[in-house]
Amino acid sequence: MIAEQVLFWVFALGTVGSAAAVVFTRNAVASAMSLVGCFFFLAGVYVLLWAHTIAAIQVLVYAGAIMVLFLFVIMLLSLSDQGPVLSFTPSRILGGVAVVALFVALTLVFRQGSDAPLTWTGDAAKLSSFGTIQHLGEVLYTQWLFPFEAVSLLLLVAILGAVVVAKPRI
């Protein structure tokens, strides 16, 4: 039990710290690298939630594919860092206050929930298959086959759209 607590706080503080680095660093490449770190810490949190498959997908797709795409674009555009990272216009200050208020409100609502430790509430037979790639695959390819195919079509359309939009002349 104590290991879970230690790991949770390590991963949680790492996630929040690197997410803050994404928002508050000037250099876009540094932001992207902080985001990669954030995704790795988050994958650790997912493992604590017994979501091993999603943690693996998180590292492969997010920290791997999507962030490579981001870094490619950042380096392709070779942006120079000009001006302050943050500028305090009234609308930005208002936005910051609204975000803090949202966080406080969400925290107050979530604290109404139970403080009990996470115990297994599901069917005892499902305990060994919870979150495994075998079980998720079985559900995905039977019950959720249509959404799965729709998402594959969506990805195809997105790739074609990205090529059409980004290419100067087809």
């Binding site: 966080f103 969400l106 925290t107 979530f110 929930g113 139970s114 403080d115 430790p117 996470l118």
Partner: peptide
């Protein structure tokens, strides 16, 4: 404190 769902939800809210 033991880690409950609330901890994860507050982490998600912070993110």
């Amino acid at each position: 404190q033991t880690i409950s769902t609330t901890h994860y939800l507050v982490l998600a809210a912070a993110l």
